[in-house]
Nucleic acid binder design. Structure first.
Lengths: 349, 349
DNA sequence: CTTGGCACTCGGTAGAATTGAGTGCTAACA
DNA sequence: TGTTAGCACTCAATTCTACCGAGTGCCAAG
C-alpha cells in the first residue's frame, strides 16, 4: 500500500544528535542479539555519557515518533521499520572483509561460461558471502536485435524456430502447422524468415508475406510464435541462490513458508526487484515494497550496469534485522564486478 | 550406506495376517495423526476382534522385529523406516480423487509450449495435487543427433555456437577465439561446421579439419565447445515445484533447512531420483536412498517413458509419514499423462 | 492363546511462585 | 532546564510442584 512513511518527507532527519546515537545503538544491538534492547545497555555501549534514565526518556520520545516499539510494557525497545529506515539512511557504507573480497575476486577471475551460468553461480556466491537468500536478475532481452533466425525441420509436422539475438541470447519455439511440409519447403521458409527478421527486435512489427503457399504460412506461424515469446524473454532469467537460508534466518515456520512461496514465483520476484529500483531505493524494509507476505523482510538491491545501460540487478533478501552494512557492501561489490565482467572490453585472462 | 534392510531378503513378508493388520493400522493411524499410536486405538480401529492386551503383545513382537519403535516407555508406537517399507510394499494401489483426476486431465488438455515449460508447469501441478514438493526430471539429451549447427557472429571476437538436436533441444555456447574474424570467415566456418556435425551426436567424435586458417580454427573451437557442453545437456533440466511445501510438511527448522539445502543442488536431486529408479524402487523411505540429510524424507518416483524408452521421471518428496497411496497415485497418473503427452503420435486437440 | 486386571512409567499440562530485566515516575541536584 | 539516582511497578520467562492419564508390561485366570 503506502510506499514510504510520508512523515519522512515532511520532516526528514528530525533527530538531534543524541537521539540519533541512541536509535542507532538500539538498531545495531537488536540486529546482533535479536532481543529487545534496554536503556542500560545503550547507555553503556554508545559513547554518550549519560545515564540509563536519560536514555530512557529519549526512548519514549523515539517511540512516540515511531522509530521504536515495545513488545510489552516491561521489555526493551525494538526498532520499527521506520527505525531501520533511519538506520540504513544514515549508514556509512561499509567494506567487505578481506577474505570475502578475495573470494569475490577469485570467483570473477575464474568464472567461465554462458551468461546464464555466470549469473546462476553469482547468485550462489552472493548467498554464501552473506548467508542470506540472493536474487540475480538478468537483463531484459527485449531490445536486442535478431542476428539469425532459422526454422529446423524436426519431422514433417514439427519444426523448431531458433532465433539468435545480438546480446547472445537464443530462444526456441516449436511450430506445429496444420499441414505437412517437405524438407525443402522448410529450408525455403527458413531462408525467407532469416531475411525477414534479421536486424529487427521483438518490439518491431514485421511485414509478413500474404501468399497462400506452405512456405508463407510457415513464415507467418514463425513470426507470430516469435512475438508471442516476448514475455518469456523478459521473465526467464532470474536466479535465486541459497533459498535454504530462509530457514536459518527467519524464525517461525509460517514466515518461512510465506517467503518461500514468494520465491517460488519468479516473475513476482523480478517485479519486486524492479519496483524497488524504480523507487530509486537500494533497500526496501518491511512493508515499503508493498508485498504483504514479505513484511518481515528487508530487500537489498543493486543495479547492474553494462556500458552505462541498466542490465539487471542483484539482490539480497533477509529479515528486517539483517546485517545491512555487510550485505549492502556485498551486493554492491558483486554488482560492480558483474558489470565489469560483462562490459564491452571483455575478459582477458 | 545400506541400501535395503537385508533381513528383508532372508525372510520376506514374515508377518502373519494379524501382525500385518496391526502394523498397517499403526502406520495408517500415525500417518494421519502424527502421534504415537497406542494399542487401544488399534484394537478399536482394525477389524480384528481382539483386546488391546493382545495387540500390545503383538506390538512388542513387531518392535523386536524392527517394524515399530517407542519414543519412550509410556508412549504408543511409531513406525520405523522398515515399518513404512512393509506398509508401502503391501499397499494396494489407490486411485486419485475425481476432482484431482479432472485437474490433471484439464492440465494436460490445455498445456502448451516448449518441453521445458511443460515440465516446469507439471512440477507445479504435481505439487498442488499432493501438497508435497515435486521433482520433474527431463530426459537426457545425450543420444539426440544434431540437426543443425551454426556459428553466429556477435562481434569480431565473439561468436555463438547454436546447435539444434533431433529431440528439439537447443544449446548455445560462446566462442571467443584469440583472433578476430570477418563476417565472411564466420559464415564460412558455420557452413563447414554444419556439414561436419549434422547427424552426429554428442557422444560421437568427429574429424576436425587440421588446416591452419581461421575458419579451421573456429571450427575446432566450436567442436570442442560442443563436446564440453555434454554435462550441461545431462544436468540442466530438473524442475522443482512447491519447495515452500517443505516448510509446511516437515517440523523442525533444522530438517527444513537440510531438505532445502539438498533441493538447491539440482544435480544431486537428479542423481537421487536416478539412483532410486536404478534400484528398481518406486519409493525410497528414510535412509534407503543413502542421502543422510534426507533421512526424515520419503521419495516417490515414477519413470516417464516416451515410446517405450526411459525419458525422465517425476517424483515427490515428503516426510516418511506421507500419504503414500494418494501421492503414489498422483505421481503415476502424472507420469502416465506426461508419457502420453510426449509420445510420437502427438497432441491433436 | 487370549484377556481382564493392575501396578507402573513418564511426558504433558496446569498452576503457583519466583526471578529479573526493564520500565515510568518523581524528587533532588547542577 | 536537563540530568540523574532511587524506587515502585509490570510482566514475560523460568522454575517447581503436583497431577493427570495415556499407554505399557506383566500376570493370573479363563
Amino acid at each position: 500500500m503506502a510506499r514510504r512513511t510520508d512523515s519522512n518527507l515532511a520532516a526528514p532527519d528530525d533527530l538531534d544528535a543524541r537521539k540519533a546515537t541512541i536509535l542507532e545503538a538500539v538498531v545495531a544491538e537488536h540486529i546482533d542479539t535479536a532481543q529487545p534492547v534496554g536503556s542500560s545497555v545503550v547507555a553503556a555501549s554508545a559513547d554518550l555519557d549519560v545515564s540509563s534514565a536519560t536514555v530512557r526518556s529519549e526512548m519514549v520520545a523515539l517511540e512516540r515518533e515511531g522509530y521504536l516499539a515495545q513488545p510489552h510494557t516491561s521489555a526493551g525497545r525494538v526498532p520499527t521499520d521506520k527505525g531501520y529506515r533511519y538506520f540504513v539512511d544514515h549508514l556509512k557504507s561499509g567494506v567487505l572483509g578481506t577474505a570475502q573480497q578475495l573470494q569475490v575476486r577469485d570467483f570473477f577471475a575464474s568464472v567461465r561460461g554462458e551468461v546464464e551460468d555466470v549469473l546462476e553461480q553469482t547468485s550462489t556466491l552472493l548467498s554464501q558471502l552473506t548467508s542470506y537468500t540472493s536474487v540475480v536478475v538478468g537483463a531484459s532481452h527485449a531490445h536486442a536485435s535478431i542476428l539469425s533466425a532459422q526454422l529446423v525441420n524436426l519431422d514433417p509436422r514439427h519444426h523448431l524456430l531458433v532465433a539468435v539475438f545480438s546480446d547472445g541470447s537464443v530462444i526456441k519455439h516449436s511450430i506445429v502447422p496444420t499441414f505437412e511440409s517437405t524438407h525443402a519447403e522448410v529450408a525455403d521458409a527458413s531462408q525467407q524468415l532469416n531475411a525477414l527478421l534479421i536486424g529487427t527486435s521483438l518490439e518491431s512489427r514485421v511485414q509478413v508475406p500474404s501468399r497462400h503457399d506452405n512456405e508463407a504460412a510457415l513464415v507467418r506461424d514463425a513470426v507470430s510464435a516469435l512475438h508471442a515469446a516476448q514475455p518469456v524473454m523478459d521473465g526467464e532469467h532470474v536466479f535465486i541462490g541459497g533459498s535454504s537460508k530462509v530457514a536459518e534466518v527467519f524464525d517461525g515456520v509460517e514466515t518461512v513458508r510465506k517467503v518461500l512461496a514468494i520465491l517460488e514465483q519468479e516473475l513476482l520476484v523480478v517485479s519486486l526487484v524492479q519496483d524497488i529500483l524504480d523507487q530509486g531505493l537500494s533497500v526496501a524494509i518491511g512493508s515499503e515494497h508493498g508485498y504483504e507476505p514479505l513484511s518481515a523482510c528487508a530487500v537489498i538491491v543493486a543495479p547492474v550496469m553494462i556500458d552505462d545501460a541498466p542490465a539487471g540487478a542483484v539482490g539480497l533478501l533477509g529479515p528486517t534485522r539483517m546485517k545491512y552494512r555487510e550485505a549492502m557492501a556485498a551486493a554492491e561489490v558483486v554488482s560492480r564486478h558483474l558489470s565489469r565482467h560483462f562490459a564491452a572490453d571483455d575478459d582477458v585472462a
